[in-house]
Amino acid sequence: MKPIKQYAYLFDTTRCIDCRACMIACTVENQVPMNDSYIWVAGKDVIGEYPNLKRATMPYHCMHCLEPSCASACIVGAWQKREDGPVVYDDTKCIGCRYCMNACPFDVPHFEWDKGIAGGALITKCQMCKQRLEVGQEPACVQTCPTGALTFGERQELIAEAHKRINTHPTRYINHVYGETENGGTSYLILSHVPFKELGLPEIAPTPVNAVSETVMSGTLPFAFTWGAVLTGVALLVRLRNRGKEIAAAEVIETEKSTEETK
């Protein structure tokens, strides 16, 4: 594969048969332990009542957001959105606080609950097979998919392809490419023939979820200095006033004393 601008996945539910080859390929490629997985099925699969049924599933994994909340939230900056697409992890920095797990609107990151101090408990998630990207290979999940449900490429091109599919088959898909704008845009784009929440995908506005948080955080230092100045000011004013009162009270006593003495 030639080096290209920004990688993304396109997933099409109409092609997915829930075989889970992607999950097994990922587990083998990334040597994921038996009690963890970077990809999983999130929806309920069977929709409707007998005999009017539909099926839809999706291999759920990191969305590789353009504005990742994990990277915004991480106290030590262990998460980074790379220019070429993946949200990657620096496991030398992580302190295991798990704020990223709370911050992620897709509930993606997992934690190594079974590792003690010696083992070094870390956060785990899909990193777009960055080791494969380096040698010009697609992520393992995409590479193995027997039906072409998962494809990979440049983000804008995939968005165009997704819209093309919607236009070519107007009654087939929900008229929306999930991930085009959600959370400020993600690098995991989804076409679906059922409402996205049936796949386990949350409803998220185009504004990144970290927007308010980052705004507030950027105001911290200015606020701190301002508040410190205000408090100092108040303390000084209060003391000045109290001092003034003391002086006034002392003068009154002095006056009374001298009045006494002159009598």
């Binding site: 990277a71 106290i75 302190i95 295991g96 606080c97 934690f111 101090i117 948080s213 507030v216």
Partner: peptide
């Protein structure tokens, strides 16, 4: 904390968008 022995990391690795920092 998952890695309590790294609690001091917040002093040398600082992500300035993080409220937790």
């Amino acid at each position: 904390l998952g890695r309590p022995e790294r609690i001091w990391h917040m002093m040398i690795y600082q992500n300035h968008t993080s409220i937790l920092l």
